[in-house]
Design a protein around this nucleic acid. Structure first.
Lengths: 228, 228
DNA sequence: TCCTGGCGTATGGTATACCAGAAACCAGCC
DNA sequence: GGCTGGTTTCTGGTATACCATACGCCAGGA
C-alpha cells in the first residue's frame, strides 16, 4: 500500500468560483457579530463581486444558496440582508436539535461500537468540573463537539447534516456568552449521565436524557437570553 | 369588517422567473416516475430554457436550488441528473421524520387547543377500517395528511418546514404502493391510539407512540421495499 | 410647511456570449 | 483488429450588458 502512485499536486483549488464565494461569504458572516448595533447587515452584489474579483454570476449563486439556508434574505431590487434570527426561531432550532440528537442517541445505543463510546467518554472526562471555571471560553466549543460526537455515533448521515446546519446558525449567538454560563456545571453532570446511558446501551434512557438536556437549554435560553 | 377596501387583482403572476421555473421543475419531477427503468434522468439547461421560454440564468438558479434540496445533482460539464434516493437515504429520511414528528406530538400535548385535537380526531374517524380496503388509493394521501396535521399542532414552524421537505421526497416512492399496503389496518389502530394520547395530554405516551409508529414504517420499508 | 409628482439612481433580475473541460468520435498507426 | 491520439461537440461555469422597479431627491404648488 506504499504510494507507488504519482500524486499530482492540486493545481487549482479545484473548487468552482461559486463554491469558493459561498465558503468565503459564510465564513465572513460567521465571524461577524451580526447582533452588534452598528453591524452592517446589507450586502451589495456589485461591491462583493469587485472585492472577490469574480463576476456577479457565481456570487449570486452563492448568495442564493445562503438565502435558502436562511443566512441571508434577498429582496428584489431592495438588497441582500444578513438575517438576524428571532428568539422564536432560535428556540425552534434548539427544539429540532433536541429531537434529532435524542434520536441519534437512540440509534447510537444500537449502532456505536465500544471503542466509539470510549472516545465519547474521554471527551467528557477531559472537562472535569474544576477546569471549567478557567476554561469557560473553550467550553462552548467542547460542548458542541460533545453533542456532535453523539450525533455522529447515530450513524445517520442525514441527522448529522441537519444538526450541522443548526449548529452553524447557533454559533452566531454564541457571542452572547450567556448561552451557557452557569449551565456549564450542570451540563457536565448531564453529559456524564448521558455517556453512562449510552455505554449501558439503555436506549430509552439515553434518548430521554439527551432530549431533556437540550430542552433544558431551550428553556434557559427562553428565560434568560434576550434577543430581537 | 365588510370589504370596503378596493381589492386590486394581482396583475402579473408576481413571481420571478426563477421562482416559476423552480415550481415548474419541482412539479415536473414529482409527477414523473423516476424509478421506472426507462425514465430519462438527465436534464439539459439549454433544452429546458428553450422549452420554458426563459434564458438559462433563472433556470440555473432554480436548478441550483433543486440541487441543494437534493432533488437533482448538478455535475460540472457532465450534466444535471434527477436523483434517485437510495434505500439507505429513504430510511434515514423516515428516521428523521420519526424524530421530528414525535417531538411535534410532544409539543402538541402542550400547545394544541381542544378544537384542534377534535379536528385531528375527525380526520382519523373518516377512515374507519372497513373503508380502507376500497379506498386504498386515497389512503396514502390521508395518511400523510394525518401526520402533517400532528406536525402542525406542534406549532413549530421549523419542524413543519422540515417535515414538508421530507414528505416531498417520499412522494416519489409512493408510486411503489407497497409502501403501506397491508400496513393500513395497523396504521388506523396506531393513529387512534395516538389521537387518544394527544387528547389525554399524555406527553410521553404521545411522543412514544408517534415515534414507534413511524419507526415501524421504517422497519417495514427496510424489510419489504426494494430500491437501488 | 407639507404634500405631490416627476425623475434619477441604485440594485436585484434576466438575457446572452464566451470559456473550459469531459466525453464521444474518428483517423491512423502498430 | 485494437489501441492511441487528436479533434469535435456537448455541457455546465463565468463574464457582462441590459432591464425593471423601489427609493430618494427635488422642484412646484396648495
Amino acid at each position: 500500500m506504499a504510494d507507488t502512485q504519482l500524486k499530482i499536486a492540486p493545481i487549482g483549488e479545484g473548487l468552482s468560483l461559486k463554491a469558493r464565494a459561498y465558503e468565503a461569504l459564510k465564513a465572513a458572516i460567521m465571524n461577524m457579530n451580526i447582533y452588534a448595533d452598528e453591524a452592517e447587515l446589507r450586502l451589495d452584489e456589485r461591491d462583493l463581486s469587485q472585492r472577490f474579483g469574480v463576476s456577479r454570476t457565481p456570487l449570486r449563486e452563492a448568495l442564493a444558496q445562503l438565502d435558502q439556508e436562511g443566512l441571508v434574505r434577498i429582496v428584489a431590487r431592495r438588497g441582500i440582508f444578513i438575517v438576524r434570527k428571532t428568539k422564536a426561531e432560535i428556540l425552534d432550532m434548539i427544539t429540532v436539535w433536541a429531537a434529532l440528537e435524542s434520536m441519534a442517541a437512540r440509534l447510537a445505543t444500537e449502532q456505536a461500537s465500544a471503542e466509539e463510546m470510549a472516545g465519547l467518554h474521554s471527551l467528557v472526562d477531559r472537562f472535569s468540573q474544576d477546569e471549567i471555571a478557567r476554561k469557560m471560553g473553550e467550553y462552548s466549543d467542547a460542548n458542541i463537539k460533545f453533542h456532535q460526537a453523539i450525533v455522529g455515533l447515530g450513524k445517520c448521515p442525514l441527522i448529522v447534516e441537519m444538526t450541522n446546519g443548526l449548529f452553524f446558525h447557533m454559533r452566531a449567538i454564541r457571542q452572547r456568552t450567556i448561552f451557557e454560563q452557569d449551565r456549564a456545571k450542570r451540563s457536565i453532570v448531564d453529559h456524564k449521565e448521558i455517556v453512562g446511558a449510552l455505554e449501558a446501551r439503555d436506549t430509552e434512557r439515553a434518548e430521554r436524557l439527551v432530549r431533556e438536556h437540550t430542552l433544558r437549554l431551550r428553556d434557559h435560553v427562553d428565560r434568560f437570553v434576550e434577543l430581537d
